[in-house]
């Protein structure tokens, strides 16, 4: 298990505190930034570690945001997991509590309607970017490229066309991958 010195752990925590307020549209919209920070800027994790963290969080029950403590865990063990989870949730949670109490009665004012309408297409663009970054390691891996790309496309198709629960697709992906087909 990796560890980080206390100073870098504190930096990780502070970075996640600021990210928290930017995570409009859910945890997955911050995934590209997590990738940039952990893989590109800090070099704490590789591309494959990053995709594994997202896959584990998808495979396990619970909110998708749990890929964030897994990244923290991979970089810095349990203290990293705790710093990442508390950091990413604390500011947004306090803000949400405040806004919720302030009341939803102003949702129909022009400024708030403009805010939701203006942010929506950006959120969609960010989720597409997340899908692209998750697919990227497969594009660069000639040994598994074709099987993985077919699996990605099939998953997207089944998700869009059926009501099948994701757990079955994840299980199928695990079986196909273990058999060396993807």
């Amino acid at each position: 298990m990796n560890t980080l010195p206390a100073g870098e752990l504190l930096e990780l925590f502070l970075h996640f505190l600021t990210l928290s307020l930017l995570s409009i549209g859910g945890a997955m919209s911050t995934a590209p930034e997590m990738h940039r920070y952990f893989v590109t800027e800090r070099g704490w994790l590789g591309d494959a570690d990053f995709t594994t963290a997202v896959a584990l969080a998808q495979a396990a029950p619970g909110p998708n945001v749990l890929f964030v403590p897994v990244l923290g865990f991979q970089a810095a063990g349990l203290p990293g997991a705790a710093a990442a989870l508390v950091g990413i949730l604390l500011p947004s949670t306090l803000l949400s509590l405040g806004v919720s109490r302030w009341g939803a009665s102003r949702r129909d004012t022009a400024l708030v309607r403009a805010f939701t309408a203006g942010l929506a297409p950006i959120t969609v663009g960010l989720v597409f970017a997340t899908g692209w970054l998750l697919a990227l390691p497969f594009v660069g891996d000639p040994a598994h490229r074709n099987g993985a790309l077919v699996l990605i496309a099939l998953t997207a198709l089944v998700t869009l066309r059926t009501k099948l629960a994701p757990i079955w697709m994840i299980a199928a992906g695990a079986v196909l991958g273990a058999a060396g087909l993807a």
Partner: peptide, 28 residues
């Protein structure tokens, strides 16, 4: 291999979610 397969499925799930979200922009 299993983790690699699950990673590919995770990418497909996110892309499908993005496509579904695209539909909500119609009324924007």
């Amino acid at each position: 291999g299993a983790l690699r397969g699950m990673g590919a499925v995770a990418a497909g799930l996110i892309l499908a979610m993005a496509v579904k979200m695209l539909g909500t922009l119609r009324g924007n």
